[in-house]
Design a protein around this nucleic acid. Structure first.
Length: 795
DNA sequence: ATCGCTCGGGTTTTT
DNA sequence: CCCGAGCGAT
């Protein structure tokens, strides 16, 4: 059914009408024709169709790099320009906040400021927005807290301990994984308990834990990540009039990365696109429900572990009868060599619709392969090649290094620092996950949501104020016995008969939180935060500490205050809860800044949706890719292959595949085998600088860094060594903190480097701790070294 | 209540 | 290897 081009008159608020005048539509052309041809400019026939098709359901199968973002943004622009929808009637769901920001910007570039009225956000952000507005319908308040996975785990840990379930083998990790999985399937305690075999003591115990966890969340006025989606679905189903508000509002729902939606997200989309019910009998409807556009590629589904259900996209046509399907196969990103490699790899996944990416840009350069002796050797190769690319004119910001596990960053980082290579790690140990940041946030959360016992207990004795576990338990009991919240119990601390010192500590913390709450009314988030971390002594205690790391922690808190100020600037009307939401929902890829001028390091998962001129895929080894943990899981190896595919297809011009013969893990060194996926790439596409075979045999060419060390283990063939023996690698990075701060180097000096051997300094650049020596080594070639920490000595 | 020591276990990926 | 839990000393 084709939708009729009629803007809903009720939605025409003056603000939006104003917006229309600023849009770049020729006012003499109400049909929008000339605007339309502009929107279709440069698109291929399939892309055009995807922009123009009108109907209830559209699936755009978009291969990697096929220009889906262009299609999506132009489709939205076309809806707006033809006045088929007001901005407020459009809901676009993206995978990350960064993607949302980019889409908003690109739609804005096409149609002007009207774009601001649209909802373009992630599933989680959209649900928070709805929940904040509607929370009061079902026992929450609008200032609820969002628990991240570590918050959930702390809570679950406490519950397991209280119930003595640890002896049954329950751990916070496995319980929270199981609960998350259930919530992604929209199960709750009751529905789970109905089907559970309660004879089984393990099952019964789990149900108890799940129930206690659910109660604790409700009591704390908190949602965990999975609840954000699940509870929104529940809200819509339980309160049809609430659902109707949104069903009436959104006429067009667009979902990106549809292959990675889980059942809860799928259900949310179903609810949103359902025709609104006029009454509770749901018999009479006023409109056909929102039209749905989904974009995805089942070959890029990499989140099954998080409940993503590939069937959502595979069975789209069955779910939405009459749905239109459009395939985008032409790739505008990569060279043909890269695409052929990607196609060959993914073809090994059976049970998929065949899809072949092609490009008109030509073969391009060959893929480069390298096998290092160790993870550090591999990292050195990556660093050297990046330097080479950079000297040839490629900016650091268009280069990225991907890896399967976060643990792999360590070796890369050490080498990059030594090589004075500017880099940024996306995700990993995230800023907001640092203990001191969580502590500081704990104060803010305690002020925003006084019901949040978890936050209160976190800050109760941080910094140390003499309130130990015994006192904490007493307070907790007192609250339970008198039917008070933990926060209220703190105010009544005098009634507990504790020592004067402890009582005083509790009361003054309580008073500080009240002071913070009073400040919130003035709307200055950063001031509230700054007051709390100062008057609580949190910052002071870190500054006074003897631990040298604590100084950095104090600076991190200062940084958080700066983030809050930045938030105030960007959101003049932003409230405390908005700041808390923003902090809770940042994704690994969100803080990506293309203008940073640095190389980006990230996991393969984080890399999805991004593109770079040059891409390094590291650790292409068995047990890493495919990861050991995935090998036994059904569908595991196929998903790992898709992950490899995603990595390959991020590259525009150059692709480097590297692996190591041995890899350090947990301090042990283990032998690594080349990944099975490597063989799936046609051999002629890869130019091996040092192949797995060469690295094993003696006397093969030994390029770069290895020459320098070779003498030290000359004659010991790696293959003859017992595999399990622990050995010191000559180019292993020692953990000791080196400080060459006082070393003076000048052009012409000769130096010796522990890995690269002897060389001559050509120039020295930079100042103080950042002085960099540019050195020509006799056998290892040219290198840049950070003088302060490089393992070098002057000769 | 707090500090410092030892021991054991552990991350595959993330909103 | 690195972190947290658990324990004994202050």
């Amino acid at each position: 059914m084709a939708s009729t081009p009629e803007p809903n008159p009720q939605s025409a608020t003056p603000v939006i009408v104003d917006g229309w005048h600023t849009a770049s539509i020729p006012s003499s052309d109400p049909s929008g024709q000339s605007g339309e041809s502009r929107l279709l400019e440069g698109l291929n026939p399939q892309q055009r169709e995807a922009v123009l098709y009108r109907g209830q359901a559209l699936l755009i199968v978009a291969g990697a790099g096929s220009g889906k973002t262009s299609v999506l943004t132009r489709r939205i622009a076309s809806l707006l320009e033809n006045r088929e929808a007001w901005p407020s009637q459009i809901l676009a769901i993206t995978f990350t906040n960064k993607a949302a920001a980019e889409m908003r910007e690109r739609v804005g570039a096409l149609v002007g400021r009207v774009a601001e009225g649209m909802w373009i956000s992630t599933f989680h952000s959209a649900c928070v927005r709805i929940l904040r507005r509607e929370a009061e319908n079902f026992g929450f308040t609008k200032n609820f807290t969002i628990y991240d996975s570590s918050d959930s785990r702390v809570l679950i840990k406490r519950i397991i301990k209280e119930q003595g379930a640890d002896v049954l083998g329950f751990t916070p990790a496995n319980v929270s994984a199981k609960i998350s999985k259930l919530k992604n399937e929209l199960a709750d305690v009751d529905s789970y308990a109905r089907n559970a075999n309660m004879e089984d003591p393990n099952e019964a115990a789990f149900v108890q834990i799940f129930r206690a966890y659910t109660r604790a969340l409700t009591a704390a006025n908190a949602f965990d990540f999975d609840d954000l989606i699940g509870q929104t679905v529940y809200l819509f189903r339980a309160f049809p009039h609430v659902a109707a508000t949104y069903q009436n509002r959104f006429k067009h729902v667009l979902v990106d990365e549809y292959q990675d939606t889980n059942h809860a997200q799928y259900s949310l989309i179903r609810e949103l696109t359902r025709p609104p019910a006029l009454d509770d009998n749901a018999l009479i409807t006023t409109s056909p429900g929102a039209s749905l556009t989904v974009v995805g590629d089942s070959d890029q589904s990499i989140y099954a572990f998080r409940g993503a259900d590939i069937r959502n996209i595979v069975e789209f046509e069955r779910d939405f009868p009459g749905a239109k399907v459009i395939l985008l196969e032409q790739n505008y990103r990569s060279t043909q060599n890269i695409l052929t490699a990607a196609n060959s790899v993914i073809a090994n996944n059976f049970d998929r619709k065949d899809k072949k990416l092609w490009t008109a840009v030509g073969d391009g350069e060959k893929i480069v392969g390298y096998t290092g002796y160790s993870g550090h050797d591999e990292a050195q190769f990556v660093a050297d090649e990046i330097e080479k690319l950079h000297r040839e004119g490629m900016p650091y910001s268009s280069i990225a290094v991907f890896y399967r596990t976060n643990a792999q960053t360590r070796a890369l980082e050490e080498i990059f620092i030594r090589s004075a290579l500017p880099y940024r790690i996306m995700g990993g140990t995230k800023f907001y996950e640092r203990a001191e940041i969580k502590d500081a946030m704990g104060y803010l959360v305690s002020v925003a949501n006084p019901q949040d016992t978890l936050a209160l207990r976190r800050i109760l004795n941080t910094p140390k104020r003499g309130i130990g576990p015994a006192t904490e338990t007493q307070l907790f009991r007192f609250a339970e016995d008198n039917n008070l919240t933990f926060r209220e119990a703190m105010r009544e601390a005098a009634a507990l008969g504790l020592g004067p010192k402890v009582t005083n500590a509790i009361l003054s913390l309580s008073a500080l939180l009240d002071e913070g709450a009073a400040l919130v009314a003035e709307g200055k988030v950063a001031d509230v935060l700054s007051t709390l971390v100062t008057k609580s002594g949190l910052i002071e205690s870190l500054r006074r500490s003897h631990d040298p790391q604590d100084e950095a922690r104090a600076e991190n808190i200062e940084e958080l205050i700066a983030v809050a100020r930045e938030f105030e600037r960007n959101n003049p009307d932003g409230e405390l809860v908005d700041f808390l939401t923003e902090v809770s929902l940042v994704a690994a890829a969100d803080d990506l800044d293309d203008s940073s001028g640095t190389v980006s390091l990230m996991t393969l998962h984080t890399a999805k949706g991004l593109e770079y001129d040059a891409v390094f895929l590291t650790g292409i080894e068995e047990d890493l890719l495919p990861h050991r943990m995935s090998a036994s899981e059904p569908g595991g190896p196929a998903e790992e292959r898709r992950l490899f595919y995603v990595g390959i297809t991020r590259a525009k011009k150059r692709l480097f595949l590297s692996l190591a013969m041995t890899r350090a893990q947990y301090g042990e060194t283990a032998v690594a085998m080349p990944s099975r996926y490597l063989q799936e790439i046609p051999g002629e596409l890869i130019e091996w600088r040092q192949s797995p075979g060469m690295a094993n045999s003696r006397g093969g060419t030994q390029p770069r860094a290895l020459n320098a060390n070779r003498t030290k283990w000359n004659g010991t063939d790696l293959a003859t060594k017992p595999l399990t023996e622990k050995r010191d690698w000559p180019n292993r990075i020692t953990n000791q903190v080196r400080d060459n701060g006082s070393l003076e180097l000048a052009a012409g000096d000769r130096i010796r480097h522990s890995d690269f051997g002897e060389g001559r300094v050509q120039t020295v650049t930079g100042e103080g701790a950042k002085r960099i020596a540019h050195v020509q080594f006799e056998s290892a070639g040219f290198k840049k070294l950070l003088i302060k920490i490089a393992p070098i000595e002057k000769l």
